Simulated scan of single mutants.
Amino acid sequence: MHNDHVYISVVHYPALNKEKKWVCTSFTTLDFHDIARPARTYELAGYYIVQPLEAQQFVIKEQIKYWTEGFGASFNPKRSMAGSLVKVVSSITEMLEKIKEEKGKYPKLIATSAKKYPQTVSYSQMREILNKKDDVYLILLGTGWGMPPELVESCDYILEPILGPGDYNHLSVRNAAAIILDRLFSINRC
């Protein structure tokens, strides 16, 4: 895998609601394939779903099993390949420990946000960093109304926001993941 030093994750906790309070958001089954497939296309090491709620974890694990071991694996082998990248964890800490077990070191964290922070880096800067393959990296994608600023600011890097021509800026995590991965790893750069 070309980018086996990079992971992506969807963080359901901590997330913010409209009132800027910490909440746990719900997993949507669309997030499973709509992020796993671009993660596989761009040859990432894995895709983690951070979800502390046991009932939600059960749904995610059943989906993983269906697409990697069950009828789905034989029905659609390409989705099975993508599904094999997906892992569910209870916390960011657990995810970091699992990546360390696999790669021998903790990943550098890359936050995503719809807001610009002082330490924001451009996609071209991040591509250069990732192309060196000197470290392991983890891209954190927020849900709800984004990740708490404390989490974003604690990361090693913060990617610039995805902006359109107007002031509307509220993409689904699935759309954002595909755009971000394409900007960072596409071989067909404009």
Score class of each variant (00 low, 15 high):
His2Phe: 10
His2Pro: 05
His5Lys: 11
His5Ser: 13
Val6His: 08
Val6Phe: 07
Tyr7Asn: 08
His12Arg: 10
Tyr13Glu: 12
Lys18Ala: 14
Lys20Tyr: 13
Lys21Glu: 15
Trp22Cys: 01
Thr28Leu: 10
Thr29Ala: 14
Asp31Met: 04
Ile35Trp: 00
Ala39Gln: 00
Arg40Ser: 14
Ala45Gln: 01
Gly46Gln: 04
Tyr47Asn: 01
Ile49Arg: 03
Ile49Trp: 02
Glu54Lys: 14
Ala55Gln: 15
Ala55Cys: 07
Gln57Val: 02
Ile60Glu: 04
Ile60Thr: 10
Glu62Pro: 04
Ile64Met: 04
Gly70His: 11
Phe71Gln: 12
Gly72Leu: 11
Asn76Gln: 10
Met81Phe: 11
Ala82His: 13
Gly83Arg: 08
Ser84Val: 03
Ser84Cys: 07
Leu85Ala: 06
Leu85Val: 10
Val86Gln: 03
Leu96Pro: 06
Glu101Thr: 03
Lys103Trp: 12
Gly104Ser: 08
Lys108Val: 09
Ser113Glu: 04
Ser113Arg: 02
Gln119Val: 06
Thr120Lys: 05
Met126Lys: 07
Glu128Ile: 12
Asn131Arg: 11
Lys133Thr: 05
Asp134Cys: 07
Leu138Asn: 09
Ile139Thr: 02
Leu140Met: 13
Gly142Val: 00
Thr143Trp: 01
Gly144Ile: 09
Val152Pro: 01
Cys155Asp: 10
Ile158Leu: 08
Ile158Val: 15
Leu159Phe: 12
Ile162Thr: 05
Ile162Pro: 02
Leu163Pro: 02
Leu163Lys: 15
Gly164Glu: 14
Gly166Val: 12
Asp167Glu: 14
Asp167Arg: 11
Tyr168Gln: 10
Tyr168Pro: 07
Leu171Asn: 06
Ser172Ile: 05
Ala176Met: 00
Ala178Met: 08
Arg183Pro: 10
Leu184Thr: 05
Ser186Asp: 11
